[in-house]
Nucleic acid binder design. Sequence first.
DNA 1: CATGCACGCTCAATCGATTTAGCAACATTG
DNA 2: CAATGTTGCTAAATCGATTGAGCGTGCATG
Lengths: 343, 343
Amino acid sequence: MAGNGGNSSRRPTIYDLAQIAGSSPSAVSSILNGTWKKRRISSRTAEKVMKIAAEQGYAVNLQASMLRRERSHIIGMIVPKYDNRYFGAIAEKFEEMARARDLFPVVTCTQRDPELEFEAARELVSYQAETLVVTGATDPDRIAEFCAAAGVRTINLDLPGSKAPSVLSDNFGGARDLTRLIITRTKQDFGAVPPLWFIGGRSHDHNTMERLRGFRIAHQEAGLTLSEDRILMPGYSPDNAFAALEGREFTQSCGIFVNSTISMEGVVRWLTGNVAMDRVRLGCFDWDPFAALLPQNVGMAEQDVPAMLARLFQIVSSAEGNPSDRIELPCILRPLSPQRGFI
Amino acid sequence: MAGNGGNSSRRPTIYDLAQIAGSSPSAVSSILNGTWKKRRISSRTAEKVMKIAAEQGYAVNLQASMLRRERSHIIGMIVPKYDNRYFGAIAEKFEEMARARDLFPVVTCTQRDPELEFEAARELVSYQAETLVVTGATDPDRIAEFCAAAGVRTINLDLPGSKAPSVLSDNFGGARDLTRLIITRTKQDFGAVPPLWFIGGRSHDHNTMERLRGFRIAHQEAGLTLSEDRILMPGYSPDNAFAALEGREFTQSCGIFVNSTISMEGVVRWLTGNVAMDRVRLGCFDWDPFAALLPQNVGMAEQDVPAMLARLFQIVSSAEGNPSDRIELPCILRPLSPQRGFI
DNA sequence: CATGCACGCTCAATCGATTTAGCAACATTG
DNA sequence: CAATGTTGCTAAATCGATTGAGCGTGCATG
């Protein structure tokens, strides 16, 4: 039966509780924040106050508490989107691990908009976040610089920057392995292997460039010359991938490297209406359980989110992370067999 | 070139800026929060202070600001998971719409854990959130009661409660329509239609009950007797759905109503190893673009997230929402054709 | 009986920004 | 020249919780 007993609708403060308990605000404060034994408050008083606090529906005002204390325990994260499993897993795991360390996670989604990324970072700094994790940001260095001036630590995740330590996937290795797999399967199923298509991502994006590098190397290894006009980097949205494919002809059997599940949506939508499906083999960077069931999908490169966040929190906990640190973690290649049965 | 010019590493405050500018903290405060014209500060002073603030990398301390002001502009949301498109879309749209209304959204993910749901709510109240949106909570009324005592408005989303206005889908109608579709397609493809399976969700969960009601009605309409042992409600995780199916035999052609995409993952994983796939037709509550490509999938009931959030923010903006309000919005039925080609 | 100490508490300053009240200087008006 | 108004600012209280310093009481000890 929580309730403030019919008096004002304002939230009760320690002063209200002190008055009701016939005690002092400082006693009430220490009782409610657990330091009362250290301050030699009797358990009789403590119990009385805690009972009253519960009756009044008291909840500490963290605004006031944090203003006075030196630490906020807030750890912020900006994340581009929640529309795929990769970022969903990052956000979820981040919150879980932050809580496990008695930190208060605040995650905010910035829609891949550079301005919003910066504004959100500024907001989190104003909120007294002690650490800011910058995930997949367009311009992480701008944010790192601003945060450094404000005395807030930043760590880059997914996309690296040069002004704060970065934790990311081995995009090169993951893409190379995935490309190898696509080539092998295409050869296996069709005999001949024309150069693969590369679809999705942005040409100034570090991860896209690294994946493209892995893609090239795997072509070289296989003795294939890749054709530059099959490299399409229109951004990450399904619509962009779809649009980039409009008007193209897939006349022969071929393999496609899809750079993110979100681009995959557009690719599949386009292919659905345009190509004989049995003449295509796909591989996709990032993991999605349903995308894995597409029979044309020969494999996915899953980024190791738990490992990435484990490293991230190692940096958070440790004294220092060097701005030049760049930690790359291997991807998990998930080959998919055509016999998986759900066709 | 933000930076505090080599002096202490502490964040600069309005007092620091005032000292540098040879002005007073109150002038600095009003200049930085935009009320300076009203307070008749000269533009000469204002420009000087703003220049210094930029140089020093000043960012307002919202903890202090909000403590003093009456309003925090924070709107909190708790959400169970980020592992599916439905909740991902909710979180994303919520943040977008909150920002458009000059509110500061704080979303936190509670893993379908009732204790965590309550703790997160308590934390958001302590953060002085003015409104709390309780999404898909196990026990929304407990949270609503606590928040009411603390003077914080709550609105339920997705799962209804009795102590705060609720915005949700017409789960009954959506499930009825989806069941009709599954029955039709099963009949069309196989001739005979045995009672459908119902898989996923929790038996005490309002939405699951409503969907089951729609499921029953559609059976009645079609003159089918449904069999209770085909109703499996082991929760929402893929593993639970998988486990619930273990040991069962799907001897004849059949249709399956899957209660959420997340359960769908488990169902599909199980079916993949166990049943002749061409003897199954599925329908799934909630939308997922890749799940939509499964050839056995005859349709999905998409919840209308933009409409739900539009209604939600209507309540947020309006003076009052009645605790007994329960707004149900129609789902969008997305029938899928077997000719969609991606087989 | 004076001294010391443990106990159980209270006082008051403090965190950083906001805001009401008001002051000093100057200009304008009657 | 006095009264009044305008301009451009400052002083100080305030939001709610925290915390170092300190106070009064009771009991044990020498």
